[in-house]
Every structure is written in structure tokens, then in C-alpha cells.
Design a protein around this nucleic acid. Structure first.
Lengths: 389, 389
DNA sequence: TCTAGCACTCGAACACTCCGAGTGCTAATT
DNA sequence: AATTAGCACTCGGAGTGTTCGAGTGCTAGA
């Protein structure tokens, strides 16, 4: 155990064998034996040799046996080594790029639809569960805020954030306030808050708007408070999950209890979201790794804008995931960016026995598409992207 | 088989036995035999007598045996007889009534939150899956419509329907239109549409608003079209499903393939919604039945408003459900009403082996609570209900 | 250093038995 | 005529034993 534990200590043959084992296990979900391995991957060694190597790989902690006379399967560490060093990332054909951009923006009205569709697309393509978080807007600024009377006692607040995102919310107001008063208060709020970062807006900031009007303070304060809540509401991260039911079709979910435990966790969406955001912050280091495997995508002339870099991704395998009921899952995440300030997370959750290469390609690809499309969409008039109409 | 098939042909003893069998099977999910039945429900007959009766009930089609030497379990027809004639509906304590009303309205802002919470509450209480459809608003009228500029090229349409429901939607408009033009168009639309039933608003109706302004027709038309889409959007029925994962905990979902097929169907929410609405229209007759078992709830002085009638409900059992993958489920639905014109559906889906009495009580109860609360909420100023603030 | 060969291991699959909770039927009892 | 006691019968489930084969580790020879 002490002698050698890191992947770098493996010779090429060990690497080939480990890769073959992971590939095979991912495909079949059955422990793989030395003989069938030699046959299926026509390795130029006898099964006995492979056996010896497998024994060593097991001792190094990359493989495990469910019982003595069974084949081997990858341990968490084995998957980890595979993901970090042995992975090949398939490319995604350029037609797909066009299709996805179209899918993300077609008939699009609200920003959140784009995120919903991202989740949908990813679940469809990977056949696993996808999670997409709406961006965190705390760092962006308020571009407009309008309050509109609906009827005595009720109004609607419409907020426009600097990247052009619109949120709104119904509020209750004192029935005594009439339309004219409300407009006055609205304008005071607007003067007071426009251009401020959401983060900087507090109850104190907003209450200074009260000084700006002649109306009775008690009335004004309630409106201010409601407006404040509406603003804070837009900072909340929305979670879009798609493909939950898909996991049921994978053999590791044969066991209903395990499935049930998993779903119990997934139901707590805010917790999952929180975990994803933590990951991003903690794992800038891992992110670098993503850049290691950087790959230059040659763009044929005339294709859509391509990028030289592949977005960083993070992979959490089995026990590495700090969420209940996820011990047999893997969680791949990546961060999409819209401009410099706005970012959110995209993730795929599947069994540990996952097609890592494929999923990572897909998630990176979707990340790029979403970032690009959203940026083009937000920076209206930008010429990098043509949307419908 | 020919001799007697209807429940009414059963003598009291048969009824008692059938009821006991259903109750027992619902509890244990195991075929129930004559001996254990006698013991558990201390019937005053020997197991042999029960055996004879069970044989007859089987011949009449109310019971089935999984194999020769096993106990009996209810057939679909057996459940049907149980639901139609043998059911006892537990009452729900008045404290619960207060609690639900509070839960449904606490911190409430948007109408759809109330529906979401209804679904949540029902799933929680029944431990099955709940479906709640938003009301169909086609028959209500448009009280207000406002269009507000967000930035060149984008605007927001806010609609207020007569029961005080607010919808909004972002739209794209020609970039040439400035705020003043937009307001003019908005007012024209308002003049043209206010007070009209949604059903009566068509592209033709709305286009008459164009005549009302001086602006270039091409520009106006696009806005009109977008406004039209926004209006039609509010007619769409939203589907809220909660407790999907809960079904996994029930033994009939041990079989993952069956579960998977079920979820494949449930994923098509619009189809499920369509089915529920069909049911309501077709089954006015069944609805009458619900009123048959009418029960007077004596209201202790000082409790919340109680009603004499129990809302009508419909039960669909097993094969009766015309949806794929639902052969082993039961579907209980009911229609909530807000005022005379607005109605929507509430449903619970669980295994055929369902606690019918309990679920029907719950769904009726929730129906009443939602109808009442919503009505109080919509008819603002109504004094039947006190909401927070 | 590799590989052929061999003894060994263990789970999956199948056959077999036993057990008990269930049945239907018949004859005796009320 | 209705009920019940009694009995032979059925059949799934749990338990046991056996076989089979794909896997292993180890050793000796190429």
C-alpha cells in the first residue's frame, strides 16, 4: 500500500489496463475478468500477465473485487485516475452546435426559459439527471425598478437588472395608497436605487427613499419593505432539474431503496444548489485541471464561432460527494459565465459507472453554448449572434 | 357469472366480508385468507363459511386469487364496489382546517403559490402523488392590460383578470417603437379589450385596436400579436405535481420497470391534465354519486365555516384509467370552484391498494379549503376570510 | 519478464424437499 | 337450509445440495 499510490507511478501498461477495465465496466456493469479483457481489447499479453497487473492495481487501490473469485471493478480511486488521466473526450459535431443554439433561443421570451431548456437538453443528451442553477445576480446592478398599481391593495414590481434580465413580483400595499401616490413612491425608489448593485441594497439604503416624498411615512414604509423583498427575491438562485426519472432506467437503480434515498436528497433542491456553489468556490484548483486537458478545436471556415478553450469542469466521484444517498453517483459540474460578473452552475448526476468522456464533452459543450447564447442575448444589439427576428 | 353481478345483489354478510378483505389487503398488501380474516375482524362465522362466501364473491368477480392455494385480493370490480358502497369517510378535525387555510395563504403573493401549496399539502398528507391544475380562465374577463417598456425592443405585458389574478409576460417589440408610442398602443389595446372574456379575444378582435392609433400599422401589428400571445398564454393550464418520489416507497413500485413506465407517463403533464379535464366533463353522473354519500358535518359553535355538502369526487380504478402505465394505480379527482365561473382540478394518484376513505376525505377537504380560501382571496374585501394583513 | 498450467473459490442457476397457509369439497351438526 | 368440522390437496417460499463456469493466485518453465 505504501510503495506506490499515485497514478503517475503507473507504467503505460497499467494505464492501458485500467482504462480498459473502466471502459468495459462502464459498458457492461459487470466485474471484468482477465480473460475477457484480453479478448475484448485484444491486448498483446496473456490473461495471466493481466492478472498479475490487476492484482497490483488492486493493491494500489484502483480496483476492487466484490468477492474472491469475481472479476475486478474500478474503485472510486480508479475512476478518479481514469477521469484525471486516461480520459478521451469525444468531439461534438458542429451541426449539433447550430442545433443547440437554436433550441436554446427559439421562441424565447424569458431568461429562465433558456436555463430550463439547457437542463432539458442536457438530460436528453446524457440520459442522466441534469441540474442547472440560475445565475447569482447579487453582483449585478439594478437598471430599472417600476411599481405599477393593479388595484387598491395590490401592485406589481418590475425589476430590470443590468444584463437585461427582468423579474417581477406581486406585492401588497396599504389600500389607502392610490395610483398617484404609488407612482410618486415608485419614482422615489427608482431615484434611490437605480444603478446600485443588488448586494448593496439593504433596508437602510432603501429607506432613504422615504425622505424623498411627502407622503405619510407609515404608508411609504410598507411599500419600501415590499419592494425590498421583491429585490432580494431576485437574488435567490433557482434550480432547474431535469431527467430525474431517467436514472431509474439504469441498473444501479434496480434497488428501489437506494433510488428512494437518492430522490429524498434531490428533492432538497436548495441543498443541492448550495453544494454546487460551494464546489465551485473550493475547487478552483480542480478547475485548473480542466484546463490541463485543454484541447484546440480547429474551426473549419464558415462554422459558428468556436473557442480554443474548453470550459473548466469538476468531477466528484462516489464518496467524494458530500450529499446523502450519493455514494454510488458521480457529479460533474461546470460554471457558465455571462460577461464577467454573472455566473451559474451546470451539473450532471449519474451513476459512478458513467460515460465520463461523453458527459464531460456534453457538459462543456452546453456550457459554451449557453454562455455564448446568453451573452449574445443579454448584450442586445451585439452582433456575435443572430437570434430569431 | 350471469346470475348476479351487481353490488346490490350482495347480502350484508358478503358486503362485510368484501369490506374486510379490501381493508386488510390495503393494509398488508398480501392476499388475505379465510382464517386470518376471521381472526383479525372477529367475524361470527367459521373460516369455512367465509371460504364459501369468498368463493362466491370470486365468482361474482369481486375477488381474485393470484394462484390456487393463495388468499384472495380485490379485483378492480371489487375496489369499485368498495368505493361506491362500502366506504367510510373519516372526518378531518377542525384544527386541521385552520392549519390548512393558514398554510395555503401564509405569505402568499401570487395565485399560483396557493395551487403549489395545495399540491404540496395533499402529497404530504396522503403520501401519494398529487396533481393540481390551475384554473381555466377562458371564461373570465380581462380587467386590465398594461404594456410597459423595458428597453428598446423589449416590453412587459401585465394582465389582470376579473378575479384579480395577475399574469405577465415579456415580449419583443420593434426597436423603433419608443416609450411614448408604446403607451399609446397600450392604451388602444386597453380600450379595445378591457372587460372582454378571454375566450372572445381573437386576432381579429385585437387587431381592431390598430385602427385606434396613428402609428404605422406594421409596427403596431407586431405589438398586437405579441399581446395576443400573452393573453392566450394565460389560458394555458398549469400543472402542479408533487410527491412523485413518494410512490417509490410503496411496495407496488418494487418493480422498477413498472415505476419507470409510470413516470414516463407522468412526465407528459399536459396529457395527464387533459385526461383530468376530460374526466370532469364526461363524468357528471359520477359526480352525483359523490353527493349521494352526502354527510352532514355538525359544526361546533365557534369553529370555522363548515359546509353541508361534500364536494363531488371521482374515482378511477386500475384499468379504468385511460393512461399508459396506470393499470395498477387509482386516480381520485375532484373539481374546485372559485365563484361560478372559475374551476380547476385536484387529483391524487396512488396504487389501487389505496386508503380510499382517507384519501377521499383529504381531497374533499382540500378542495373545500382551496375553494374557500381562493374565493376569499379573490373577492378582496370579502369578509368571509381574514388573510394576513 | 512473461506465460502456461493448475488448483482453488465462489456465486448463479437449478433441482429437490419441506412447510404452512391457503383452498375446495363432503359429511356431520345445528 | 345454513353452518361448521374435517380432510385431502395445492402451491409458493424458504432452505439445502449440486453443478457449472468464470474468475482467481501461484508456481514452474520458456
Amino acid at each position: 500500500m505504501l510503495e506506490q499510490e499515485r497514478t503517475s507511478d503507473m507504467d503505460d501498461r497499467k494505464k492501458t489496463i485500467l482504462k480498459a477495465i473502466v471502459d468495459d465496466y462502464v459498458k457492461t456493469c459487470e466485474p471484468v475478468g482477465s480473460k475477457s479483457l484480453v479478448e475484448r481489447y485484444n491486448l498483446n499479453y496473456s490473461s495471466a500477465t493481466i492478472r498479475n497487473e490487476m492484482a497490483e492495481l488492486e493493491e494500489m487501490g484502483f480496483l476492487v473485487k466484490p468477492h474472491t473469485s469475481a472479476g475486478r471493478m474500478p474503485s472510486d480511486k480508479g475512476y478518479r485516475a481514469y477521469v484525471d488521466n486516461l480520459l478521451s473526450l469525444p468531439e461534438i459535431p458542429p451541426e449539433e452546435e447550430i442545433a443547440v443554439r437554436q433550441f436554446l433561443t427559439e421562441n424565447l421570451r424569458e431568461a429562465r426559459e433558456m436555463i430550463e431548456r439547457t437542463a432539458e437538453y442536457l438530460a436528453e443528451k446524457t440520459n442522466y439527471l441534469s441540474v442547472v442553477l440560475s445565475p447569482q445576480y447579487s453582483d449585478t446592478s439594478l437598471e430599472q425598478i417600476k411599481i405599477m398599481m393593479i388595484e387598491p391593495g395590490r401592485a406589481i414590481v418590475v425589476l430590470v437588472l443590468s444584463p437585461g434580465v427582468v423579474h417581477d413580483r406581486l406585492i401588497r400595499i396599504p389600500s389607502l395608497i392610490d395610483e398617484k401616490d404609488l407612482n410618486e413612491i415608485g419614482q422615489a425608489i427608482e431615484r434611490c436605487l437605480t444603478g446600485k448593485r443588488l448586494n448593496d441594497i439593504t433596508l437602510v439604503t432603501i429607506s432613504s427613499a422615504a425622505e424623498d416624498t411627502e407622503l405619510p411615512e407609515a404608508l411609504v414604509n410598507q411599500v419600501l419593505y415590499e419592494a425590498y423583498v421583491a429585490i432580494k427575491q431576485t437574488e435567490r438562485i433557482e434550480v432547474y432539474i431535469d431527467g430525474k426519472y431517467r436514472l431509474l432506467k439504469h441498473p444501479e437503480f434496480r434497488d428501489v431503496d437506494r433510488a428512494s434515498r437518492f430522490y429524498d436528497t434531490m428533492r432538497q433542491e436548495q441543498m443541492v444548489a448550495g453544494y454546487m456553489r460551494e464546489l465551485e468556490q473550493e475547487e478552483e484548483i480542480d478547475a485548473m485541471k480542466g484546463l490541463d486537458t485543454l484541447e484546440i478545436i480547429e474551426s473549419a471556415p464558415g462554422t459558428l464561432a468556436t473557442r480554443k478553450d474548453r470550459p473548466a469542469y469538476m468531477v466528484r466521484i462516489g464518496q467524494e460527494i458530500a450529499l446523502n444517498g450519493m455514494e454510488d453517483m458521480s457529479f460533474i459540474t461546470t460554471t457558465y459565465r455571462i460577461g464577467r460578473r454573472i455566473s451559474g452552475q451546470i451539473g450532471v448526476i449519474g451513476p459512478k459507472r458513467m460515460e465520463y468522456g461523453n458527459i464531460i464533452s456534453q457538459i462543456s459543450f452546453v456550457n459554451r453554448a449557453l454562455s455564448d447564447v446568453a451573452e449574445g442575448h443579454y448584450t442586445r444589439g451585439g452582433d456575435r449572434l443572430t437570434l430569431e427576428d
